[in-house]
Design a protein around this nucleic acid. Structure first.
Lengths: 134, 134
DNA sequence: TTGACAGTTCGACATTTGTAGTGTAACGTC
DNA sequence: GACGTTACACTACAAATGTCGAACTGTCAA
């Protein structure tokens, strides 16, 4: 898309498929494509080669790194889960909430029907943060 | 991507470009492609035809509707801003937080450096929700 | 009526994405 | 050392995306 303004380098965006794969890699790294495919086949029935191709591409995109041992490709993540989450949050906020955080929470509170329990949890989270910031 | 399980119909996902355009449409609808292009040219320098083509495609995808008056195409949104936000939130949570809300907020509180003011705002939002749920 | 304009339609093209088949090379086993 | 099993590398291909240019058309004022 390419905005005109400069922006502090943030992790490139991942597609849905890539997220699914990354989530497995973070759990199992370093791991082979077969491992990932097997972990996912119950939910998504992708062929081995589909997963492998995607992972190869993710190496090019620098989401993954590859280490070859003998006949085996071992993949590892090149971005941390937290960085990826941060990037995703930024993009999400940017798209839908003009980048602002509190409107987003406001929206959630207003629009999603939160259970009393969830509200309690949220309150606790905030409370803790609040205390810590003093 | 297509998961194996069924899922309640939720709005299809929009690309970044589509979000940018939608945000303008929501502000100005019903509006012409030229209006949108002009509104965006300062930030993104897309040619008129780029915007127009994208909007045409968005009609096909049912994000927009088109009404032709004489020589003019007037576009309107077919999904509400809130629905789009809801969908986006779901996708965001699904990708990065296994669909769960509180871990997401936890993450924000832990990882983003929130200003004291932001924390206060958050607390107020929650407090209000809390009171309301009783 | 003739431009100047604004807006349209259509086609085009390079990339990226989703998805996978195939032939091949290495591995472990009997 | 032959053989079945794996995992790999390579190729393919349609659909979606990002991006426009060119040619055409309707409108309105001079």
């Amino acid at each position: 898309m390419s905005k005109k303004r400069k922006s502090k380098k943030k992790p490139a965006s991942m597609t849905d498929v890539e997220w699914v794969i990354m989530n497995v890699v973070w759990e199992h790294e370093p791991c082979a494509a077969g491992t990932v495919q097997e972990a996912l086949v119950k939910e998504y029935d992708w062929a081995y080669s589909t997963v492998k191709t995607t992972m190869d591409r993710m190496v090019t995109k620098a989401f993954l790194s590859r280490k070859t041992i003998r006949n085996l490709n071992l993949f590892s993540s090149r971005i941390s889960r937290d960085d990826a989450k941060r990037g995703e949050l930024q993009r999400f906020l940017g798209r839908a909430f003009d980048g602002a955080l509190t409107p987003m929470l406001q929206f959630i509170v207003d629009e999603e029907e939160l259970s009393a329990d969830e509200i309690k949890q949220l309150r606790n989270i905030i409370k803790r943060a609040d205390r810590q910031s003093e």
